[in-house]
Nucleic acid binder design. Sequence first.
DNA 1: AGTGCGGATGACGTAAACGTAAGAGAAACG
DNA 2: CGTTTCTCTTACGTTTACGTCATCCGCACT
Lengths: 132, 132
Amino acid sequence: MTETMTIRQMCDAFDVTPRTLRFYEAKELLAPIRQGQKRLFTRRDRARLKLILRGKRFGFSLEEIRQLLDLYSVDSNQETQMREAIVVGRRHLEEMIEQRAALDEAIAELTEQIASGEAQLAELQSARSAAE
Amino acid sequence: MTETMTIRQMCDAFDVTPRTLRFYEAKELLAPIRQGQKRLFTRRDRARLKLILRGKRFGFSLEEIRQLLDLYSVDSNQETQMREAIVVGRRHLEEMIEQRAALDEAIAELTEQIASGEAQLAELQSARSAAE
DNA sequence: AGTGCGGATGACGTAAACGTAAGAGAAACG
DNA sequence: CGTTTCTCTTACGTTTACGTCATCCGCACT
């Protein structure tokens, strides 16, 4: 069905702007095929875009993501390229595991802070009703 | 002991540059006291800087972090300000929880990709030794 | 008195990741 | 056939988060 998608369909599907998709193409993160002038984004582009957006969310730069994408691209049957991709992948994996630990800690602390803030508010409430 | 710290001590302790600390002060994320011209960073500044660096790591902008810091600053006994901080805090908390879920998924997938990449490499190895 | 050293204050520069406007071409619609 | 509607390329603009001078000040040695 949706074997390929237009730029507009991509934008709607992934909530990005056309500019962003063209920018990613210029940076060689995506490689849509052309039908005349127009871009057609394939399943592969969609998979890559998903990974790009995920990577961005975790604070990786587009350049870091570009290196990592080689690991997911099946056509990296070139041995040296594959080795390189695995090294990059391992580095990212480590970083992400560290990030998860830090995230857990941050979530715990923030939860605590919110609770303590609410407690202070509740105190203000009861102080007010006692004053009536 | 180290009740207050100079800018250089801060830089060494947190691995940032003086420029960064002055920048954060300009953005009202930090508020070191002054001894003459020189900045002296207090315990409070250190706690805030820790939160700032953590927030950055999770992809929050300095402006978002600034809003969140009110929640941790104990002197936000102003009720409306406290309410606002709690709302912001809840929003961040939700986002971080979502982020953790996405992170878990990404870690799982990346682990898989690395394993599959290594399998391909191993195949190349055995193909080579069989060719001898 | 001279000379570093640490820190301060502008002010301009920069990299990343797009935003935005201008102009043009194809294509779909009434 | 004219007019929106998409999309294209080109190119300059913008925001965030600092980097990088240049210059100056005050204090500690010697």
